[in-house]
Computed example of a mutant assay.
Amino acid sequence: MPKENNLIPGLAEMHAHVPPVDNLEPMKEVLTLFLANGITTIRGMLGHPRHLELRDKIRSGEITGPRFYTTGPSFNGNSVKTPAQCEALVREHKKAGYDYLKLHPGLTKENFAAMAKTAKEVNIPFVGHVSFDVGVWQAIDAGYSSIDHLDGFVEGMVPGIEQMNEQQTGLFGMFIADKVDQNQMPKLMKGLKEKNIWVVPTQALAERWFSSIDPEQLNSAPEMKYMSREVRDNWVKSKKNLQANAQYDPAKMKQFIELRRKLINECQKNGVGLLLRCDAPQVFNVPGFSTHHELKYMVDSGLTPYEALRTGTVNVATYLNKSAQSGTIKTGNVSDLVLLNGNPLTDISQTTQIAGVMIGNLWLSKEYIDRELKNLEK
């Protein structure tokens, strides 16, 4: 019995990484991996001056790729040391034409405040990590456009966090999930909702990098053939190093992952906007392929397949203020479409059964996609 065909809007990946290098060729490889997987919009989260050129070439049709939004180079503890430097860099990124400011860890309260104040003045949104010294409550008050990785959520619900340091808590609070006061969760959801802060979970990081799964099992996945051996070896090493950490406890890590799933579900139930994302290429997350893993993790967190699909379609259009022209299939909308050999509303994994992708006026057939992927095998 033949599979049914279904058409869905093109998916978005709102925490992607395009190589921050001077050469456009490695960037094109990543763009192809996304398009081949039905990802027709991406937000690059580690900016580089040549990304502005890449964005222009995509818009003009000179380079085939997803619709591209880019952050500037990172704001972090090394790139900005004073409030004055923060203010100057915000203005520089705005003038250059970046779509967003990207925040990484290491910002002090004072430098973060200067960044946020200047960003509001020049009207450029800021997104990404929440620095440990800043904390999620100051981050919410400052009005992030999106908080990525659920960063700061766990730490913000731990009593006595002020007496802890970042090494004790681990990345995204992974080592202190058992200390969380879940009575703080409604307050967290209320703050995010009232400030209209969108949440970009990147749950694939937790499920694949932080979990106790054998790294060699993940390394043998079919999509790993698109990453170089050096990259894959580094991914294996990174996961093994984490599992060898004296603070790493598989049972507690499972608790941490389940807490993240609950946070994602609470966002959905409380009307906090969720955006599809997985932080690829990152540990065992291959661009494009990992976005489909992320959809499954959204369903594992309690969302229905329909709700999960909205995080990469309707929600993204709303976030980008493009609801009138994208995110749904209707006459007059942009023709970013994915033809599937299956129904993702009954089985979310069917989003991987791609028969073709439409990006604007360009149709990418199954044969074309297979040929392009073959060329990218390492």
Rank of each mutant, 00 (worst) to 15 (best):
V18M: 12
A355W: 00
T108P: 07
L276P: 07
C278L: 01
E266Q: 14
K366Y: 11
E121M: 12
T331Y: 06
E92P: 01
K374V: 00
P125G: 07
Q85K: 05
V314C: 01
A251G: 00
A280V: 07
G312N: 02
I369P: 04
D148M: 03
G38W: 05
I257G: 04
K378G: 14
N375W: 01
A317L: 07
D99L: 09
V199F: 03
N270T: 11
L188F: 10
M174N: 07
C278H: 15
I329R: 12
L345W: 15
G106T: 05
Q163R: 11
N6P: 00
L259P: 12
C267H: 13
I39N: 02
E155V: 13
F256Q: 03
G10I: 10
T169W: 01
S211D: 11
G47D: 08
V127K: 04
G61M: 08
E110S: 12
N341G: 11
F172N: 08
D300V: 00
N37A: 10
M185S: 05
I124P: 06
A206N: 12
D249Y: 02
K195M: 14
T70S: 15
T304P: 06
T311H: 11
K237G: 03
G360W: 08
G327P: 13
K240N: 14
W363L: 11
R67L: 07
S335P: 01
I63C: 06
G10D: 08
T70N: 12
L340R: 08
A139K: 10
H15V: 01
N196H: 15
S145Q: 13
L171T: 12
L259I: 08
S323V: 07
L101S: 05
L339Y: 04
R208I: 14
K179Y: 02
N333I: 01
A142Q: 11
E13Q: 12
R91I: 08
R91K: 15
L320R: 04
I264V: 15
N285Q: 13
K237D: 13
R55W: 02
V90Q: 03
E194I: 02
L376G: 13
G173D: 08
A206F: 14
Y368G: 00
V357Q: 01
V90H: 03
Q203I: 15
T311G: 04
I8M: 03
